[in-house]
């Protein structure tokens, strides 16, 4: 086993655990109750999910129909399925299937 790899993995892994667990264990949300920090935390969720969607879709939005068209049909499939069924699982699967099918049709 590569020692450098292990050291980097352990340092990054411990930091990841600390970032994810310590704020919960310290119940920083309770300390923040009622104040500006509470409003900040309440907006963090939607902000994070919106950011992650934009970051994930952005590389596909290029003037190349082979990438752009499947991204658009996949996105529309998610929107349509969610509107009809209100299910995260079904919408996700529909988006992936339509995206893959579009790539297949264009290919």
């Amino acid at each position: 086993m590569n020692t450098d790899l292990l050291v980097v993995a352990v340092l990054a892994g411990v930091a990841n655990w600390a970032f994810r667990a310590l704020p919960i264990l310290a119940r920083t949300d309770r300390l923040a109750a009622g104040g500006w920090l509470e409003r900040f935390f309440s907006a963090t969720g939607p902000a994070a999910i919106a950011t992650l969607f934009v970051a994930a879709i952005l590389p596909e939005l290029v003037p190349d129909p082979a990438r752009l068209v499947p991204a658009l049909t996949g996105t529309l499939a998610v929107l349509a399925t969610f509107r009809l069924r209100r299910s995260v699982v079904l919408s996700t699967l529909a988006g992936a299937v339509i995206h893959g099918a579009t790539v297949w049709l264009l290919g």
Partner: peptide, 15 residues
């Protein structure tokens, strides 16, 4: 490609 689109689709559905 379809599998690769799973995460953007998931984020959008969650949003």
């Amino acid at each position: 490609a379809g599998l690769g689109f799973m995460l953007p689709a998931l984020f959008l559905a969650l949003l």
